[in-house]
Design a binder for these strands. Structure first.
Lengths: 158, 158
DNA sequence: CGCAATAATGATAATGAGTCTCATTTACAA
DNA sequence: TTGTAAATGAGACTCATTATCATTATTGCG
């Protein structure tokens, strides 16, 4: 597999670029090459990445800058942070850039995989969540649903 | 309100006590007074607690012991850890001791509140999650569903 | 009961993911 | 360009959580 961070830009990556630029500009932030590389790294993976994952993919990015930019991009709604509790947090592109999905989280090795549910289930879920939120005077922004268990690899080793 | 950690034991707390004792004994652990106090502190709250919350409720518990015991109780399936990502993790009693529920998580102040959904929705959810898990050769243990947004207090201040 | 053997405690040191600092570099706007 | 404000990167720093270890408590057994 070719390194996705250096592939020629296709239509999707141009859209992504434009979207991120807009979100950053809204808050007077610049879309620098470092941030572009970070977004590309996240976009080039089919699962959320940790900081070590990211610097492994793009070794010339400074860890401190990556952390700072993940923070900035999170504020702008471009990146979503997934706190594993143990060790490193995972990061992925946020909803408009990645279609709505959930995670299979391995409680043994910490690996995270993406999964999608039927729209029908998602709608029902949102409906009910909005209901309980309203009851608690809570303003809902988004939901996160994770299935915890053992991935195929760890289950085999147990 | 009286301090719930020193209330006379009712039927529920006796059940809880017995359950925790069994879970600990299974792994050759002892149900010491410190652990009892910790379980009582968690049981006495209607929302997940952080370490500072716990030592505020039971000031004579040593922080290092509380952390160690939370770990032990988590291993025994008595306590569940909720990683907020930022600052302190939250802890609550695990499923058999607390009925299945989900969380409203305030993205501003980090406060966590418990909510429950209809059994109907939960069943549908489990059904679909089991399906996608099977497709990924993933062995499901439990799901977690959080609604992120602004709590009434923070929304008022914004 | 009393005596090992083993687990738990708690004060403190160590760890390490993530954040902050600041001097330097880069990007944008006029 | 050129001035101004934001971004960078190396390293210092924070602070929630873990590990250490000498001491104390608990349990099983004779």
């Amino acid at each position: 597999m070719e390194n996705p961070t250096t592939s020629p830009p296709d239509e999707k990556s141009l859209d992504r670029h434009a979207f991120v630029l807009k979100r950053l500009s809204n808050k007077n932030h610049r879309y620098t090459t470092g941030r572009h590389r970070l977004v590309d790294a996240l976009a080039g993976s089919d699962k959320p990445l940790t900081l070590p994952d990211i610097v492994a993919i793009a070794p010339d990015l400074a860890a401190s800058s990556v952390y700072r930019n993940l923070e900035v991009l999170e504020q702008c709604g471009v990146v979503k942070r997934i706190a594993s509790g143990r060790d490193h947090a995972h990061f992925e592109l946020a909803e408009p850039l990645l279609s709505h999905h959930h995670h299979l989280v391995c409680t043994e090795c910490g690996a995270i995989e993406d999964v999608r549910l039927d729209d029908e289930v998602e709608e029902l879920l949102d409906q009910r969540l909005n209901l309980v939120a309203a009851r608690a005077s809570f303003k809902p922004l988004h939901h996160s649903l994770d299935l915890h268990g053992h991935c195929a690899n760890c289950e085999g080793l147990l």
